[in-house]
Every structure is written in structure tokens, then in C-alpha cells.
Design a binder for these strands. Structure first.
Lengths: 207, 207
DNA sequence: CAGTGTGAAGCACTTCACAGCC
DNA sequence: GGCTGTGAAGTGCTTCACACTG
């Protein structure tokens, strides 16, 4: 398949969310115009994004809400459950795992790990925290697909390496700093400091 | 000033973090090559990014770590304190406000608000939670620069409107969905669901 | 006639390559 | 000789515009 831009994938997420809203409101068709309006983009962009994957609409009529939602779910791989381990039994991981949309979209927490021996064995959002040293051994039974890395900055690369050794192919990272993963492993970093600094820049340089 | 790409600002953040590391290690000069290596980009990109704001290096020698760090801090507007209010006394806001780099880079929490009357008056990370209805009245005295919006999906736009009425010009939003702000107000959204779906797509469509 | 699908044009960010200075 | 600063070339995402179809 042709390489798909990251921005395209992000917009598909947004379209899907709006399609779910339309479903809840009992509406059965929509248009690229309407999707664009509610997703902060243009009708041409919506059509182009969808055209990478096929033709899901009908000329003169628009798109079937139900069909398009199913198609986008398939494209994004949301048709089945993804098994997630959380590394770092802190607030960020907890916020994520208790977030409604998390479970709702097929992401299931199958394990929680921490380096701190004081946290090991304690309950945390319905899970028992395990020592992160056991991750590689546990992985065979847990079969996790995704690791959420929510630990302080120190030693993040070491934890990334451990996750990779455990055979996990996707990482959502909340720690700052440059991290290296081998080819075949996808790493996405959410850097809140960077976002705040972007706001600082905007405030400083506004006209 | 010429319009600066968002991606440029984000990279400046990364360069600054590495410059701080060099400072801690007592090193006084660096090069575009070294900065690129540790920031996941190319030397040409580093030089181009910096060239938008001036010439901070010396040909044949490289950059002074101390000088470049100061320059980037100035560019990003990190030279002074930014006053932050947190809307939503939950886990995300708490994770952010207790994050070390937050205070360290000049972001200070000056108020915490929640819609839930059960939370009002309670202590939260050293602050007393106030009813969000009082935000507009409080703003005159608090003089907040930035609002962090960390509430569930329902009624987010209403809170954005309130923040705008309170005269705040920058919003860091953690709620999903499309939000509208008037010109002159900067909105940055961190959407964890979207990041997870990006991972799901990558796992589904890997070769 | 309304609205999709898509090649072509436009635009913006990145990379190249080299002149210029230390 | 080493490394920056920068116009020019390259690349890839976005927007346009229109043929096409229900």
C-alpha cells in the first residue's frame, strides 16, 4: 500500500468520532462538506483522505454513516481488542486507563508495571502492580500489543529497550527526550512540555 | 516576523532540552551536527531553524551552549513566569502540575477549578479547588496567561467560551472533539485517543 | 443538480550544496 | 580545514477544479 501520511490517520480518527456522534443522533448519511465542517478541515481533504483507501461514497448522495464508520474502523484496526500494558503506575497511566474512550475503542489494560518496589503488589485501578523486571517473562502469557510508557525522564531508554525485548511493537511514550527503537517498532511520543512551550511561543510572538 | 512553522517551534524545544543537558555536563560548545544527532533531525534542519531568528553560531567553531540556550529561551518566551489555571481537578491536571519540568520552565499554577461542587473547597496538590463559575471574576486578580483544560468530553466548548471570556489567550486542551476559539486565542489539543488509534493503524498496516 | 473521486497545480517544509567566515 | 548561514532544488501534503455518476 502507498505510504499514508500521519496527518491523514489523525484526521480519520476525527472523522470517526463525528460519525459516531451522527450515529447517536440517528442520522444515516453525511457529506464531505459536513465532515469537513466538524473536523476542522476542507471537503477536498476529506475526499482525498478517504480516496487512499477506496471509494466509500455515492456521487450526488454522500456517504452512508454506518458504512463509512465501519470502513474507517477497519482502516484504523479498531475492529478488535488491543492488549495494553502500562509501565509506570502513576497519574498519567491512571488517567489514560480510566478514560472512557480507552476501553470503548477496544484498548484493554492487561498489566501494570512499576520500578518502585513500594508500588509492586499494590492495587491500582483494579490491577495489581508488578515489578517491571518481570515484564519480559510475563509477555509470553500476557501477549501485549501496546506499551504505555509513563515514567519520569531518567532511564527511559532502558525501559524502551526492555519493552522491545518483550516483543511489543508499539509504544505510547509520555516521557521527554529522544528515544531509539529498532525498525518494526512504532513509537509515538506525547510531550506536554513541548506543547506548553508552543503556547509560550504563541503568546510571546502574537501580533 | 515571517511565519514560523509549528514543527520548527517543537524542534527548538528539543534543542533547548539537549542544551540544558550539555550545560549540566559542563560542556561549552556544540555544533549543528551534534544537536541534530540528539534531536532526531539533520544538521541542515538545525541551522535552518535557527536562521529564522538570527545567526547564533560561529563559522568553523559551532555554537556557544550558554548563548544558544539563552537565545532559544528568549525565542520561546521562557524568560519569565507564565501563570496557569487548571480547569478540571482530575488526574491529568494533577500529573501536569506535579511534573518537575512544569515549574522548572516557568509555568506556575495559580488556580484550580472544577464544575463538581463536591470538589470545590477541597485541597488539590497544594491548591484549593474553586467553582469554575468564579473563573471570570477571579481572572482580574489572578491574571492567568494559560488555561489547561482537562475535563471530560461533555460541555468542553462551554468551558472554552468561559476561558475566552475570562481573557485568557492560550489553552492546552486534553478533551477530544473540535473546539472553536476566536482569533488571537491559541488552542493546542493533546488527544490521547488519537495517538492510540495511530498506533493501532501502524500495528494493523505494518509490512 | 448535488456531491464524489482524482489528476494537476499550489504551497510549505525539508534537504542540498556551496559561499563565507573563523 | 571546519562548520555556519542560506538561496535553490526537492519532496510531500493540501487545495483546486472538473469529469463523472446517482
Amino acid at each position: 500500500m502507498k505510504r499514508i501520511a500521519d496527518s491523514t490517520v489523525r484526521r480519520l480518527s476525527v472523522y470517526l468520532r463525528y460519525l459516531e456522534e451522527l450515529t447517536n443522533r440517528g442520522l444515516s448519511t453525511t457529506s464531505s462538506d459536513e465532515l469537513a465542517q466538524h473536523s476542522g478541515t476542507t471537503p477536498a481533504q476529506v475526499r482525498k483522505d478517504l480516496s487512499f483507501f477506496g471509494s466509500f461514497g455515492r456521487r450526488g448522495l454522500g456517504y452512508s454513516v454506518a458504512e463509512l464508520a465501519t470502513r474507517i474502523q477497519d482502516i484504523l484496526g479498531l475492529g478488535h481488542e488491543w492488549r495494553v500494558v502500562i509501565i509506570g503506575a502513576g497519574k498519567i497511566g491512571s488517567a489514560l486507563s480510566t478514560y472512557r474512550g480507552f476501553k470503548q475503542r477496544g484498548f484493554t489494560v492487561v498489566g501494570v508495571y512499576d520500578k518502585d518496589p513500594l508500588k509492586s503488589g499494590k492495587r491500582w485501578d483494579g490491577h495489581v502492580v508488578r515489578d517491571v523486571e518481570t515484564l519480559e517473562a510475563d509477555a509470553a502469557a500476557l501477549m501485549p500489543d501496546i506499551a504505555v510508557l509513563a515514567i519520569p525522564a531518567e532511564g527511559v531508554q532502558g525501559e524502551v529497550d526492555r519493552i522491545v525485548r518483550a516483543g511489543i511493537k508499539a509504544i505510547l511514550n509520555f516521557a521527554p527526550g529522544r528515544l531509539h527503537v529498532p525498525p518494526g517498532v512504532t513509537l509515538k511520543t506525547v510531550n506536554m512540555a513541548m506543547e506548553l512551550e508552543g503556547l509560550s511561543f504563541a503568546l510571546t510572538n502574537r501580533d
